[in-house]
């Protein structure tokens, strides 16, 4: 007889009773309709499915549900309600860092993880922080710039 598990999804306690081996990515998209979490490869190679698990960036395609038991998961749908998101939103918009947009939810959460670790990162640290998030459109310069702007303009938020 299986227990159900609970985890905190975007701030809300959530009960899950499905398979422990299911991908977090699939569960988020299919069961909780959190389609801001994108599937780019299902192999941990592109970062489009990035979410924040207990404060750290992870690939939700590489995470089984059992690993999430008792943990906190934040997706773009939760994060977009924060003040920090607003600072990133403004910064990304100011340099038009969003092109096709498919990498963006993951990229935004990677941005958060860079800044929550270090509120004033160097360009090199920013590049390192998004180095697991592939973007085919921008060449990354605008995204790197946007994160730098958010750090500056959003001073005090992180």
């Amino acid at each position: 007889m299986a227990d159900s598990m609970t985890f905190i999804l975007n701030g809300k306690e959530t009960v899950y009773s499905g398979s422990a081996t299911a991908r977090l990515l699939d569960v988020l998209r299919n069961e909780y309709n959190l389609t801001g979490v994108k599937c780019g490869c299902k192999e941990g190679e592109c970062g489009a499915c990035s979410v924040i698990l207990d404060g750290r960036l992870v690939n939700s395609c590489m995470t089984a549900m059992g690993r999430v038991a008792g943990s906190g998961v934040v997706t773009i749908e939760g994060y977009r309600e924060t003040e920090r998101f607003k600072a990133l939103d403004k910064a990304y918009a100011s340099v038009s860092a969003v092109q096709c947009g498919f990498c963006i939810p993951g990229m935004v959460l990677a941005s958060e993880c860079i800044l929550s670790k270090n509120a004033h990162p160097t360009e090199e640290e920013i590049r390192e922080g998004i180095s697991g998030n592939l973007c085919r459109c921008t060449g990354y310069n605008a995204i790197v710039k946007a994160i730098g702007i958010a750090a500056k303009e959003g001073d005090g938020l992180w």
Binding site: R29, N30, N33, T35, G36, V37, K38, C39, T75, I76, E77, R80, D89, Y92, A93, S96, V98, C100, G101, F102, I104, P105, V108
Partner: peptide, 24 residues
């Protein structure tokens, strides 16, 4: 002079609907 892109908000917030995002 650059403006805020028309599709910025929906893509930035994860709300933009790509084909796989349609309910199955």
């Amino acid at each position: 002079k650059s403006v805020r892109k028309k599709d910025h908000a929906s893509k930035m917030s994860g709300g933009a609907k790509y084909v796989a995002d349609w309910s199955a």
